[in-house]
Design a protein around this nucleic acid. Structure first.
Lengths: 193, 193
DNA sequence: GTAGAAAGTTGATCTGTATCATGAAATAAC
DNA sequence: GTTATTTCATGATACAGATCAACTTTCTAC
């Protein structure tokens, strides 16, 4: 169950067997089948979840009831509404499973306890969050300054797995485009080749 | 010199006097006068810089030579091209001073050394980066889903200091808007009152 | 395998924001 | 204080991408 998890953590920090055992104890596991929700917008996000298997997406529902995909997470990624998880405020996002998934989940209290008991996990998360910031900064530049086609091409370049694994309408939403626009963008790219 | 710095760090973690002394030794200080650059796009970002005093902005120059403001940093904020700082790759951003500024700077090597010698600093940065992620996620949703007016209003709401302290054209760039658009948006808001 | 639903395509039209252009106001430089 | 430079405002126009609509293809469930 913890294979993907530890292989991921060990890429960033070293852990003794004792530490591994300690860490394991803080997590609970959960299976989610396709279309099931992990989190509903408006509720508190009680867990950070590591994806051992499967694929999930986070999305935000606006006042007009339109879904805006904010993130995808598959094997080796974490997912949660961090804001809600940390502060205990209501989540502004929902999370559901796109494929049948297996998760390792840790609560806010256990997260605190774990980092205090195994301080090197602070380092792991510091590095993890650092990388996440880099990604989000890149997405922000892209979102503010690129054309629809440039946004798509950069995504295809930097994150080909998203293109392969997800339906086009969700990719469009993730890029902040209308599905029709993405369809046309892809057509133009194909025509030019 | 370290007043703002430690008052900021101590809001997130506790430090002994000995730890403070250790930490201080890793930093160098630097004064920057208005319009001076801290970092030029294309060069490696050697430091993370904490702003003790003043105001800086980060921006990205696109292929057409147009500046896109990505961040502001004033008293109590960190600034750097994190991607470049961490990986040693060329920076994709420049940073310059909008007001005369005083900085505390730490190199990548000293950053590593400091977190190893004072592990609780990993925790500080973990929390810092967590918060930064929340902010960037909010900006991403805003950028993808809000109208020009909504973007401006949310910024005014969540970050009034930016509105007061920075010229309108830089705010427009930060929001990914043409300066003319922001001018019109502000006019409409004023008219409606 | 078939029916129904969801996702994707393509065309026509509309609209928010960018761009271009010019003048006014504010700031900075001497 | 005057001049030069930068920032801001306002109007006219252009265009990328949204929206609306109809149709086709692909999935899904039984």
């Amino acid at each position: 169950m913890f294979e993907v998890f530890f292989s991921h953590v060990l890429k960033k920090v070293s852990l003794s067997e004792a530490e591994k055992t300690t860490i394991k104890a803080f997590f609970i596991s959960k299976k989610l089948s396709k279309k099931q929700h992990l989190l509903h917008q408006g509720y508190v996000c009680k867990y950070m979840s590591f994806v051992e298997k499967g694929l999930l997406r986070s999305y935000h529902l606006d006042e007009n009831g339109i879904q805006h995909v904010t993130m995808f997470a598959w094997e080796g990624w974490w997912t949660s509404d961090i804001q809600s998880f940390l502060t205990g405020e209501a989540a502004t996002q929902s999370i559901d499973a796109i494929e049948d998934s297996e998760l390792l989940m840790i609560s806010q209290a256990d997260f605190e306890a774990m980092t205090l008991e195994v301080p090197i996990m602070d380092r792991y998360f510091r590095i993890l969050f650092q990388n996440s910031i880099v990604t989000k900064e890149r997405r922000l530049v892209s979102s503010n300054t690129f054309t629809a086609e440039e946004k798509y091409l950069q995504l295809a370049e930097s994150n080909p797995e998203i293109i392969q694994r997800l339906p086009q309408n969700l990719i469009a939403s993730y890029l902040g485009l209308a599905p029709e626009t993405l369809s046309r963008v892809r057509k133009n790219i194909a025509l030019r080749k």
